[in-house]
Design a binder for these strands. Structure first.
Length: 210
DNA sequence: CTAAGGATTAACT
DNA sequence: GTTAATCCTTAGT
């Protein structure tokens, strides 16, 4: 087998077919072990996804697009799967979500934890940290800082060369997946019991939140 | 443990 | 048009 082919095979960029699958919960689980990269100002940074949460447009009050809510902020959620939904929370932190499903079915997966792999010196610089620790990328508002993702990346096509995901042949077996209720959504109306938060068992790069 | 921070949104006039 | 409450969190006591 040609080496070039092998490298290509092991580093396959996720295509629209992946993002447009109908089951957002399944996608959230399958994203564990995938790799998220950015190439901003010619600097590549990225890592392995170890924590996600699913948000569905139906039967899910916690989802920004629930019951067809369509506003300036939620507009991209209604595009076909494979674009970035970035929004600001608590006035400070950008959170990165992947839009899934077909156009009009506004599902999303929030990326909450990342194991740093590529461009670690640049990530440290962006985070203002001297050494590598879970404070680098363990948390949804932290990994966006480390990767340089912010509000202007709202709507970015995830099959392009700015922000993208790769399957590197890393398979996470079910026994290493922890499914639990989501974080930070216990406000009026949200179903806090749904086990739609997925974590890689034993990873120190999952978010510290309750 | 708690304060911070600013956009977003719903609820008003 | 305006106001007030809210938030898929983090950093710092």
């Amino acid at each position: 087998m040609e080496e070039a082919f092998l490298v290509n095979y092991l580093r396959m960029k996720l295509a629209t077919a992946f993002y447009r699958q109908p089951d957002v919960v399944q996608i959230a689980r399958d994203l564990l072990g995938k790799y998220l990269f950015t190439n901003i100002n010619g600097v590549m940074t990225g890592g392995r996804i170890v924590e996600t949460e699913a948000y569905a447009h139906i039967n899910d009050q916690a989802c920004h697009s629930h019951l067809g809510r369509f506003t300036k902020r939620t507009r991209v959620m209604y595009e076909a799967g494979g674009v970035a939904y970035v929004y600001l929370i608590y006035g400070r932190y950008a959170l990165f979500n992947i839009i899934t499903n077909e156009a009009g079915k506004a599902d999303a997966v929030l990326i909450r934890g990342l194991e740093p792999v590529e461009g670690i010196p640049e990530m440290l610089l962006r985070r203002g940290l001297p050494t590598v620790s879970p404070k680098l990328t363990a948390g949804p508002g932290l990994l966006t800082q480390a990767l340089g993702i912010s509000i202007p990346h709202y709507g970015t096509d995830l099959t392009g060369d700015l922000i993208w995901l790769e399957d590197r042949g890393d398979v996470v077996p079910d026994e290493l997946v922890l499914a639990s209720p989501r974080v930070g959504i216990d406000y009026a109306g949200a179903d806090t019991a749904l086990p739609w938060r997925f974590r890689l068992k034993g990873s120190k790069w999952t978010s510290p939140a309750k």
